[in-house]
Design a protein around this nucleic acid. Structure first.
Length: 277
DNA sequence: CAGGTCACCTGAGCGC
DNA sequence: TGCGCTCAGGTGACCT
């Protein structure tokens, strides 16, 4: 489901709800969510008695800082967290329940079961997969033109694919890549090697600006995304191209078209984002 | 190294 | 109503 702004919204919401809570035990209904330790039963034992001290985010990953461990969680397409009372009825798509000593429960809900959880000893999370594979996210200091420019201009890949690559920049997904490229007036199929420095600068600026605005709006709600307090994001009102096929471009009035780029649905304004430039 | 395909899962929407 | 197909905010494995 979520890209950086949605994950950041979840992070901020959960921070208000579970910091200081102690895990009494957990119930895992779909063990494949738990990627490390290998055995989900060990995972379940290790988190007993741990306290939620704070919650960080790197790219699209949530990092729950516990007493002795860091829980790294990725929501993939449809993962959601919610805090419930222990007598609230359990939805069939809840796969992991953290029973808290207060009687509250932190529940992980994921219709498609694609999400992942990794547990690391404190201080180890950033040193190992998956987090050590990530490039800087746009709110980190390492996100600079000097770092990104050669990564892009030396690549024969389509710029859309480069921006979706979490090893180069962490946090962008299908929605925000389409929005970023529209705002930067760059066609998604342009090869990295064809982009000029001003174009790359525009992409970097627009990516950060788009994510910043989306965070301010609480993320984008399409289909099912709801944050941990049941609130929906508002950024979908500000989308220029994603999901806007056949609607008039907000800049020039030409209809937005939908195409495929490496099998991902891709939305562009053919007038604002010409391919031959 | 890059690109394509499939796999992981379930549900919504659409044509027939 | 039901069937079959496509699509979905992501990523990793495996193959050319």
């Amino acid at each position: 489901m979520p890209e950086l702004p949605e994950v950041e919204t979840v992070r901020k919401t959960l921070e208000q709800l579970i910091i200081g809570e102690t895990i009494e035990r957990i119930t895992v209904y779909w063990p494949k969510i738990i990627k490390s330790p290998d055995d989900y039963r060990l995972f379940s034992e290790l988190v007993i008695g741990e306290v939620f001290h704070n919650i960080q985010r790197k790219g699209k990953f949530l990092m729950f800082e516990l007493t002795n461990y860091t829980l790294v969680s990725h929501l993939r397409m449809e993962g959601k967290y919610g805090v419930y009372s222990d007598d609230d009825p359990l939805d069939k798509h809840v796969h992991v329940v953290f029973h808290l000593e207060s009687g509250k429960q932190l529940r992980y809900h994921d219709v498609r079961k694609f999400g992942t959880m990794h547990l690391f000893e404190k201080g180890q999370a950033l040193e190992q997969k998956p987090l050590n594979q990530l490039g800087p996210d746009p709110f980190e200091g390492a996100y600079t033109l000097e770092y990104v420019l050669p990564k892009i201009t030396k690549s024969e890949r389509a710029i859309k694919n480069i921006l979706l690559d979490q090893q180069i920049i962490a946090g962008l997904g299908n929605i925000y890549v389409d929005e970023t490229l529209f705002r930067a007036k760059v066609h998604p199929l342009r090869k990295g090697t064809t982009l000029t420095e001003p174009e790359v600068m525009a992409i970097l600026d627009e990516a950060k600006q788009t994510l910043l605005e989306a965070v301010e709006q609480g993320g984008t709600t399409i289909r099912s995304y709801v944050n941990s307090q049941g609130k929906i994001g508002m950024f979908q009102q500000r989308l220029f191209v994603y999901g806007q096929e056949n609607k008039a471009c907000k800049r020039c009035g030409h209809p937005i078209t939908k195409m495929k780029v490496s099998n991902r649905g891709t939305h562009i304004c053919e007038v604002c984002q010409p391919l031959n430039s």
